[in-house]
Amino acid sequence: SYYEILDVPRSASADDIKKAYRRKALQWHPDKNPDNKEFAEKKFKEVAEAYEVLSDKHKREIYDR
């Protein structure tokens, strides 16, 4: 789930989600993982997609249904 990707509970606040996104984006940024760039790019995209949905109140409500 998007919550698992960002490592936050379903009850996470918008601020918690933003902090988790920043932490995970740094962790999986391809430039930070030169030895495993392809895998890092995949993870980085997953993190971005999760944040896009969970950071938008309307999209998150739909996702949580």
Rank of each mutant, 00 (worst) to 15 (best):
R23C: 11
E49H: 09
F39V: 13
E41S: 12
R22T: 14
L6D: 00
R65K: 15
L26G: 09
Q27C: 07
K24E: 04
R65D: 05
I5W: 09
W28T: 03
A50Y: 00
K18H: 15
S1V: 06
D56V: 04
S11N: 14
H58G: 13
D64T: 02
H58M: 11
R22E: 15
R10V: 11
Y3V: 00
E38L: 12
N36A: 12
K24M: 15
S1L: 10
V8Q: 03
H29E: 08
S13I: 04
N36I: 09
L54D: 00
Y2N: 03
A40C: 08
K59R: 11
I5M: 07
F39P: 04
A14R: 06
I17F: 04
S55Y: 06
Y3W: 03
S13L: 05
E49A: 12
N33M: 07
E46A: 10
Q27G: 03
R65L: 14
I62D: 13
I62V: 12
K57S: 14
N33R: 05
A20K: 02
S11R: 10
D31P: 04
P30C: 05
V47R: 01
K24G: 04
A40S: 06
W28I: 03
H58D: 14
I5A: 07
R65V: 09
E46I: 07
K42T: 10
R23A: 14
S13F: 04
S13R: 05
D56S: 05
K57T: 14
I17Q: 01
K57A: 15
E38H: 11
K45C: 10
D56H: 05
D56M: 03
Y51H: 04
K42I: 14
A48Q: 15
I62F: 07
N33W: 15
Y51D: 01
R23W: 10
Q27K: 08
H58R: 12
F39W: 15
F44Y: 13
K37P: 09
D35W: 12
K18D: 15
A20S: 05
K42G: 09
E4N: 09
N33E: 03
K42W: 12
E61R: 05
Q27F: 12
F44E: 03
K43I: 11
P34D: 08
H29W: 07
V8C: 08
E4F: 10
P9R: 07
D15R: 07
P34T: 13
P34F: 10
P30Q: 06
D7A: 09
I17C: 02
W28C: 04
K18L: 15
L6T: 00
L26Q: 14
K37W: 12
K37R: 15
Y3Q: 00
R65Q: 15
E41W: 11
L26A: 14
F39M: 13
K37Q: 12
D15W: 11
A25G: 06
I17K: 05
K43F: 07
D15H: 11
L6N: 00
E49L: 09
A25T: 12
V8I: 13
R22L: 15
K43Y: 10
K57D: 15
A25L: 14
Y2T: 01
A50M: 01
L54S: 00
W28A: 03
E49I: 10
Y21Q: 03
K59L: 12
A50W: 01
E4G: 09
S13P: 04
I17M: 04
K37A: 10
D64R: 01
I62C: 12
L54Q: 01
A14P: 09
K57E: 15
R23Y: 13
F39K: 08
K42D: 06
K19E: 15
R23V: 15
K37N: 06
E38R: 08
F44G: 05
I5V: 14
Y63F: 04
A25D: 03
K19D: 15
S13H: 06
A25F: 13
K43P: 02
A40N: 05
A14M: 14
P34I: 10
V47A: 08
S11K: 09
F44I: 08
D35H: 14
Y3K: 00
Y21C: 05
